[in-house]
Computed example of a mutant assay.
Amino acid sequence: MSEHIIEAMGLSKVTIKDGKVINVSEPEIEYCPLFDHHRGIKKLTPEAIAENMQFRIDDFGMCTSKRQLRMKDFLSFGISEIICTLLDEKIIDCAVMVLEGCGTLIVWDGELVQGIGGRVSGLFKTSPIPELIVKIGEENIVNPKTAEINQIKGIKLAIKKGFKNIAVTIAVAGDAKEIKKLQKEHPDTNIYVFVVHTTKRSAKEARELFDISDVATACASKNIREIAEAECIKTVGQSIPIYARTEMGKKFLEMRLAKIGGEKPKKDNPDLPYPMI
């Protein structure tokens, strides 16, 4: 039996088994400008979330063996899009990411990065989907038997394979200490950290995550926003900003902006304030 848990859309925990949404917890926030803009969802409710999750399953096979893994660059601005650009421009050699049915894996194809990260975020738990593991390759997955989510093991696997410029997405503050340790142990390797899924991080967690980041997304995190707005060296986006903490992070944002022709005007609904927790 295939079971997956996604923290999505207002920090609701969504459980999916065998291609069906079986449980949706109450969301902790009721509005997200991204889902308003792209799906017309004005209020996040369990019913609206369940409908959206099932749409994803039916549309591109999320959490199933029919999962579409590749996606063309559609010129938007997000973490997966930035990483896609860095791969295309050969600034990085690979990315350590997370995919349903595989867990932590290594990819070095921009369309795979976009297809994996641009479609699903906040994967909390997953179980193996053999068809996807075959497509990705067991040798590129941290633990194909369990589909373990472990970004530190993912970085170690990338280093073992000889990659020297590695991007990694992290959402767990506890990873920060281990990444610093790996950076010291491998001075000839560059590890670029992209912090994602930051909503409801404590002040301590936000501090640890921001301090290790090259690029961090605000999501609905009050603490990340307060730290980043005081300390970042570049910001892109308004309702959901993406922050660069380092000079390399700034370069990454600027490269993506150049690719899409600059930042687009804000179109979010001003009558629906974006909550932060």
Score class of each variant (00 low, 15 high):
Thr198Pro: 06
Arg56Trp: 08
Leu34His: 06
Asn190Ile: 04
Ala220Tyr: 07
Leu123Tyr: 07
Glu3Met: 08
Pro241His: 07
Cys219Glu: 14
Gly61His: 08
Ala220Lys: 12
Lys264Thr: 13
Cys232Thr: 13
Lys43Thr: 03
Lys160Asp: 15
Cys102Val: 14
Ile227Val: 02
Asp73Gln: 06
Gly61Ile: 02
Pro27Ser: 04
Trp108Cys: 09
Arg56Val: 00
Glu138Pro: 02
Asp59Leu: 04
Gly103Leu: 03
Lys42Ala: 03
Lys160Ser: 05
Lys72Phe: 05
Lys222Arg: 13
Ile49Asp: 02
Arg39Val: 00
Ala176Cys: 02
Ala230His: 10
Asp175Trp: 09
Glu26Cys: 00
Asn150Ser: 15
Trp108Lys: 15
Met255Phe: 06
Lys222Glu: 15
Ile82Phe: 12
Leu253Ala: 11
Glu47Ile: 07
Glu3His: 09
Asp211Asn: 12
Ile6Glu: 08
Ile141Pro: 10
Ile129Asn: 02
Lys222Phe: 12
Lys180Ser: 11
Lys153Met: 13
Ile133Pro: 03
Leu34Cys: 11
Asn150Gly: 06
Gln238Arg: 14
Ile6Asn: 07
Gly115Glu: 04
Ile240Tyr: 14
Gly61Met: 09
Gly154Trp: 08
Pro33Asp: 02
Ile83Asp: 00
Met62Asp: 03
Pro144Glu: 09
Ile129Gln: 11
Gly19Asp: 12
Leu86Ile: 01
Glu208Arg: 04
Ser213Lys: 06
Ser25Lys: 07
Lys42Thr: 03
Lys250Ser: 03
Ala8Met: 12
Tyr274Arg: 13
Met248Asn: 14
Val142Ile: 15
Thr104Phe: 03
Thr85Val: 14
Leu157Pro: 06
Lys264Met: 14
Leu75Asp: 02
Asp36Phe: 11
Lys156Gly: 01
Lys222Asp: 05
Lys204Trp: 04
Ala218Ser: 09
Val21Asn: 04
Lys251Ser: 09
Gly118Glu: 12
Phe74Trp: 14
Ser80Val: 02
Pro275Asn: 03
Asp36Lys: 06
Leu44Glu: 06
Pro265Leu: 07
Gln151Lys: 11
Ala220Asp: 12
Gly249Asp: 12
Lys43Phe: 00
Glu138Asn: 14
Asp88Ala: 06
Ile159Arg: 08
Leu105Ile: 12
Gly118Val: 13
Lys264Asn: 15
Lys43Ser: 02
Gly154Lys: 11
Lys153Tyr: 08
Met255Asn: 03
Ile212Lys: 01
Glu26Arg: 09
Ile29Ala: 01
Glu26Ile: 03
Lys266Met: 05
Asn223Pro: 04
Lys72Asn: 15
Gly174Arg: 13
Gly61Lys: 13
Val236Gly: 08
Val107His: 03
Gln114Ser: 10
Asp211Ile: 02
Phe60Thr: 00
Lys42Gly: 04
Ala220Met: 15
Ser25Arg: 01
Ile212Phe: 09
Phe60Asn: 07
Leu132Cys: 09
Phe194His: 15
Trp108Pro: 00
Pro275Val: 09
Ala50Ile: 02
Gly103Ala: 08
Glu185Phe: 02
Asn269Cys: 11
Ser221His: 10
Cys32Met: 01
Lys234Asn: 08
Val134Trp: 01
Glu205Arg: 06
Ala158Tyr: 13
Arg245Phe: 02
Met97Phe: 05
Ile136Asp: 04
Ile6Gly: 07
Lys90Met: 03
Asp18Lys: 10
Asn190Gly: 08
Phe74Glu: 15
Lys161Val: 11
